[in-house]
Design a protein around this nucleic acid. Sequence first.
DNA 1: GACCAGGGGGTTA
DNA 2: TAACCCCATGGT
Length: 268
Amino acid sequence: MIVKDFSVEKTIDSGQFFRYSKEENWWYVHHNNQFFRIKQEDTNKITFEGTPKHFVTNFFNLNENMKKINKAINKDDTINKAIQENKGLRILQQDPWECMIGFVCSSASNIPKIKMNMHLLSQQFGEQEEKFGKTIFHFPPIRSLTDYQKIWNAKTGFRAKYVHAVNNLVDYSFFNKLKALSYDDCIFELQELPGIGPKVADCIALFSFGKTQAFPVDTWMRKIMTQHYFNGKKVSEKKIQTFAQDYFGRYAGYAQQYLFEASRRGFL
DNA sequence: GACCAGGGGGTTA
DNA sequence: TAACCCCATGGT
């Protein structure tokens, strides 16, 4: 399949998504009971097996016009450098349920540990299948995370109670409602849920509800933003976020993702 | 505002 | 290898 402005690696391995692995030159991606593999041998060509084309197009957000977005957020040398170093990084369109549990697990954690939590939750609760010579476990559906002990066994720690509670508080009609809401209302509703504060709410809004103005500020983003946009002065997360949304505009979320990756990879 | 809840990651000695 | 801090959220 021919693609434009899309890097499989930069998109998958950028902290927005947790159930993947790499073997040889194949990326194995597991999301929403779709398990497939994808590789990119050419900048403009991807090959995938195990899932229909429309799933790939939708999940990787391939219909989004990156030229337009990059142009809109490219306000200075810092962000320009971050964009150039991360050409092809896209924001995924994830299933809200899996995304929500992933980011509830993300609080005060790190990417390897969240990946482990998501894998263990799938192993504890999910249905098993054989594919590409591997044994895989699908992510447990809504309402199936009822056994607190199993959630605890997935090494979710103090987040186990939040995962357990959220399981009973959401469904797809709620998700559809959130998707239709404004960014502010969406964030407000998300933060009503246990284990979801401002940062986690922004991640869910950005990665599964298409709220591109979301600008999650974690400790990494705080460092980058204070250094490059506040002269090293101490500012609150809220102030950083308000500034960024005003400065970068309606696609601030992409700016966040570019800056986050550029910093993580040591380019800033 | 300080401290705590698990636990992997990272740094330092 | 041990000792220590880091991390977002919510409760005390």
